[in-house]
Design a protein around this nucleic acid. Sequence first.
DNA 1: GACTATCGTCCCATTATGTGAGACACAAGC
DNA 2: GCTTGTGTCTCACATAATGGGACGATAGTC
Lengths: 221, 221
Amino acid sequence: MGNTLGGVGVLDKAVVVLDVLEVSPQSLSELVTATGLPRATAHRLATALEAHGLVRRDDEGRFTLGTRLVALGRAATEAFPLAGAAQKALRELRDSTEESVQLFVPEADSRVCIAALQSPHGLRTIVPLGASLPLLGLGSGARVLNGQIGAQGWTESVGEREAGVASVSAPVFDAGLIVAAVSVSGPIERTTKHPGRRYGEAVVAAAQRIQRDAGLRPELP
Amino acid sequence: MGNTLGGVGVLDKAVVVLDVLEVSPQSLSELVTATGLPRATAHRLATALEAHGLVRRDDEGRFTLGTRLVALGRAATEAFPLAGAAQKALRELRDSTEESVQLFVPEADSRVCIAALQSPHGLRTIVPLGASLPLLGLGSGARVLNGQIGAQGWTESVGEREAGVASVSAPVFDAGLIVAAVSVSGPIERTTKHPGRRYGEAVVAAAQRIQRDAGLRPELP
DNA sequence: GACTATCGTCCCATTATGTGAGACACAAGC
DNA sequence: GCTTGTGTCTCACATAATGGGACGATAGTC
């Protein structure tokens, strides 16, 4: 119930509350209009979540995401063997390319950024940790996760997902399956219109290093 | 209901599931024994949470914390104006002391670590992000949040919260109220038995810088 | 191959559970 | 004064969560 259409359960409503609070702190009345829930219900849910530390009140008495979530979020990140194992390789890649780098994993019908480091330049691409992008969308990361990889092991996209930004991505394999995509992205001015020429090799190397560091098997047994 | 004793609602059970999964991935049966919930209930809850991305399955089919939580966790961290504003000051403090540093905020009857950086040394104190410690407990951080501050503006504790570790903490004020505590902690061997002498000044300076960077008013209007 | 154990998943009658309109107290503004 | 806006709480009602048990797979043992 609630996951399909029709009946909506407590849990679904509670998640809506969290979703709304993720955007910004909300007073009760704001919460009511934002969620569409009746005042009494919104209040009960928010205070119930508050009792669990998932929601707290800020200095102005508004509801915000609670401290419990920072602990859960950290644990969730660590639950990805990849996220941790990829850190060193990503840092190397970011430092050698001087552009923002990300690690994406497929999740249902989207791809989620589970690790990201930013370019040192003032003008840079930013993909927030945890950001969820459509899997069947644009960008070299999406292509890679859908199995569209060039002969050299990488895929590039120029001004595809967002105007002015280009990116190169390479797949991370486990037992012959693509489990993640490493991406480098930045403004076309710096990456040129053929970012693959510049970064392709480095991205593929980083993906392979992640494979090794995470203890994955690149080929089928 | 459920927050007191007696009736336990869906939300409470869902949180229990998350709590259990925070420790480690669990198969359904493990989840059942860990939570004490009936199999059908545990399954329904876990799959409901899965539908919202708060829970996912790992490669072995077990339940783990989901990707949605990494986004929520990040948002929760950002919802603390302090956590972000404190980063620079904490990094400076960590680099100058070469010991682990933390920022604690009071929350109900506990104190929560909302920012932490670790010592470069092999032997070091680790307080995980989001960790929740009793507010009326031991340690210089607890003391500071309870208003027990020495004349120099800091408080030290030696082998108090945990054997072998000493710490120094200083308060962050807003409008005359203590809103957070900055701590430096490390093994007694390095910090000496009078860590305040060594780090007191630096910790107080960091706390004041955080106050400034976060745009807080140290005194009453 | 048959037997048993344990797994994840799903059904459905039962009732405990969450529901939400409305009452309430408090504060600010006209 | 009155009005409008908060946040909070209650309570009769019925909806939504419950959990014992059934089911099909898979794995191991004899």
